[in-house]
Design a protein around this nucleic acid. Structure first.
Ligand SMILES: NC(=O)c1ccc[n+]([C@@H]2O[C@H](COP(=O)([O-])OP(=O)(O)OC[C@H]3O[C@@H](n4cnc5c(N)ncnc54)[C@H](O)[C@@H]3O)[C@@H](O)[C@H]2O)c1
Ligand SMILES: NC(=O)c1ccc[n+]([C@@H]2O[C@H](COP(=O)([O-])OP(=O)(O)OC[C@H]3O[C@@H](n4cnc5c(N)ncnc54)[C@H](O)[C@@H]3O)[C@@H](O)[C@H]2O)c1
Lengths: 206, 206
DNA sequence: CAAAGGTTGTGTAAATTATCACATCCTGAA
DNA sequence: TTCAGGATGTGATAATTTACACAACCTTTG
């Protein structure tokens, strides 16, 4: 079934399906259809069916999909049927807000380590996690075998911090700094930048 | 030149070009090529040239592009050659971090109003902006003629707050709540959700 | 001036992505 | 049991998006 690689654009939609399905589950909805799901998230029913069919046959003709079952399958596919420990680099305004965010743990992610280079930040405890100095970063991340990092440091230092993270074995980086990172092929980067999103909308305003 | 509509996928790349070009400008670089820019942000040179050619001929053969000129043009195209006032709804952990973020003002955006429904939050001053009660939201946004809102409220109330924003005349919403919003065709929505991005990466991890 | 080197802008071909349409199957009611 | 209604999974088709290739042009150097 998994003969040829599934395009990244499909992978990008799976988390959105999962988000909507988990939301349905919370509201007690146990069965849904590609039509209903599609209307909720603004994607065509055919698209959803085709995407899911890449991984197997999860639905029942005439009936639709079992929500708990599909949630379970998507969690397996996306590998969030486990807990991923993450490192957070940069305990500033944004870093703190992220460290306190409960949404992560509800979806298979845990902020396990926090690092900062500012001696005044080091030693602070954020959401029960002590802030460590960046001088300990590489070694500590290696010891904990952490593969995911969130980067909330100033743009000027983002690349150099990234280089250290890679040295420490990190394979996935969620970067909040407004700069494109250079990484090896086996390291994945995703970007979160509100300015980019805002500019994408002002284009369409008068 | 602007005969047929330019696809949204092209619009989505323009802010990334602008980000990289502004970065170059800061570093004193005055001329660049599609090749150099492409290598910086991981997009092919041909792609960049084609995208830009949709809006005119900004480069010089044999030489490349004037960075300040291209920055100026992109700012015009994206309509960030002005200041956009924004409303921020939800003065919690994330909302506060956003209110303090200096990046907005550097790129043509200003947090002008902050709203919250919690009486304890109302009256607080965040980065010189007083938090107002949501009961005043529709009227105040209308008076200020604000067209852009950032949503940092719990998911449960995001749709109802959105309905109010639309009533107030808001045409662009940057939504941080993990839920798909239903809006009329003339209202634009962009989503920021770290979970979505993380799940997109865990797919590729072992 | 002439020639070399380099880059743009763009028509065209290729690749990717989305949509359509329908055979197939399941459910429930008569 | 049989039939109507409804939803899936998927091959075929259409649309969109990207890559290629090169003429045209600018700059610099000798
Ligand atoms: N605040 C926001 O809402 C927001 C939004 C979008 C993007 N960002 C981006 O996120 C990043 C952080 O923003 P912020 O508002 O939290 O800034 P901030 O200044 O409050 O925090 C940055 C933190 O990084 C630490 N730091 C600096 N150099 C470091 C290094 N080499 N190693 C480890 N830590 C280091 C600083 O000590 C500080 O604690 C910036 O790149 C910013 O552009 C912020
Ligand atoms: N903190 C993060 O890093 C983070 C990251 C991603 C997404 N989010 C999302 O952003 C939203 C806010 O997260 P947070 O951590 O700041 O939560 P929070 O609880 O700290 O803040 C939410 C704020 O919204 C206010 N609020 C509640 N109902 C309201 C209403 N009807 N009108 C106006 N204000 C209202 C609350 O009083 C509170 O101040 C949530 O949807 C969360 O899922 C947060």
């Amino acid at each position: 079934m998994n003969e040829k690689t599934i395009p990244d654009i499909v992978i990008g939609r799976l988390p959105r399906y999962l988000q909507a399905l988990e939301h349905m589950l919370q509201q007690g909805c146990t069965v849904t259809s590609s039509k209903e799901l599609g209307e909720k998230i603004g994607i065509s029913a055919a698209q959803i069916r085709k995407d899911l069919s890449q991984y197997g046959e999860f639905g029942k003709q005439g009936k639709g999909y079992s929500v708990p079952f599909l949630v379970h399958k998507l969690q397996q596919i996306l590998k969030v049927d486990r807990i991923w420990d993450m490192a957070l680099i940069g305990a500033g305004n944004l870093g703190k807000a992220i460290a306190y965010y409960q949404g992560f743990i509800d979806h298979g992610f845990r902020v396990a380590l926090i690092f900062d280079s500012d001696p005044q930040k080091v030693g602070q405890v954020i959401n029960e996690i002590p802030v460590l100095h960046t001088s300990m970063m590489i070694e500590t991340i290696q010891t904990h075998q952490i593969k995911i990092a969130m980067l909330t440091v100033p743009a000027q230092v983002a690349q150099s911090v990234t280089n250290q993270l890679i040295q420490a074995g990190v394979k996935a980086i969620l970067n909040y700094a407004p700069i494109t990172l250079t990484v090896p092929d086996d390291v994945h980067v995703q970007y979160i930048d509100p300015i980019i999103h805002l500019q994408r909308m002002t284009y369409y305003l008068d």
